[in-house]
């Protein structure tokens, strides 16, 4: 241990210690004008950083995995409303969630009568042929009577407002769908990495 540490900044001797500023970059002959210029430059940089951090543009990513009528609504209602808030919104549709974006299937999304405790019938009856269609008809009538938007309308307003409706490429292939089966404006050719990348930057992430 023969190393001489007497003029290192870490020295215990206060009078010899350099301030952290000296250690970085500040020759002793710097003038007041130069310092003022440097302070001004730093202030500008700080203002730029604050502007970037203070950007209150919020964003949301929803992963939509279910294709029944009742499960199609929440993602689209939240997406269209968030877009009205001025948020940057992505809905990533995968597995049965793809049916929501499918031009034909989205018009005929079904409600399942079985396994739904809110249905006014026991499962033994709900599982009979035709019960899903009946439950779906009843729900569609309620939707119309209540003035609730249809799935088609929600897709349309979402796309109009710039919501990015994405269809997962792997499940398009898996379900044997064609990219042209989907509504105009739907993004295809995307996968889990795209969804994750957006989720990492988003303020709100939801799985439906």
């Amino acid at each position: 241990m023969s190393t001489d540490t007497s003029d290192s900044p870490e020295t215990a001797d206060g009078s010899e210690a350099k301030s952290p500023i000296d250690a970085v970059d500040a020759p002793e002959d710097v003038t007041a004008a130069e310092l003022a210029a440097e302070v001004e430059e730093l202030r500008e940089e700080l203002a730029e950083l604050q502007a970037a951090v203070g950007d209150d543009q919020k964003s949301m990513v929803i992963v939509s995995t279910k294709g029944t009528l009742d499960m199609a609504y929440p993602p689209l209602i939240l997406a269209s409303t968030a877009a009205a808030f001025g948020w940057d919104v992505t809905v990533f549709h995968t597995f049965w969630g793809l049916d929501i974006l499918h031009e034909e299937k989205s018009k005929n999304l079904k409600l399942s009568a079985v396994g739904n405790p809110s249905m006014p019938m026991p499962n033994a009856i709900a599982s009979l042929p035709g019960m899903d269609s009946m439950a779906t008809k009843m729900m569609n009538k309620r939707i119309a009577d209540n003035g609730t938007a249809t799935i088609e309308e929600l897709i349309e307003v979402s796309l109009d407002q710039g919501v990015d409706l994405q269809a997962c490429q792997m499940t398009i292939d898996l379900m044997d769908y064609d990219e042209n089966d989907f509504h105009d404006g739907v993004t295809t050719g995307v996968g889990a990495a795209t969804a994750l990348q957006r989720m990492a930057d988003a303020d709100v992430q939801l799985l439906v």
């Binding site: 409303t81 877009a83 009205a84 938007a149 307003v157 109009d160």
Partner: peptide
């Protein structure tokens, strides 16, 4: 009138 969530907000924004 006659429209329900989320349409009043979405159309107001529009």
């Amino acid at each position: 009138k006659g429209e329900s969530c989320p349409m009043p907000v979405v159309k107001t924004k529009g």
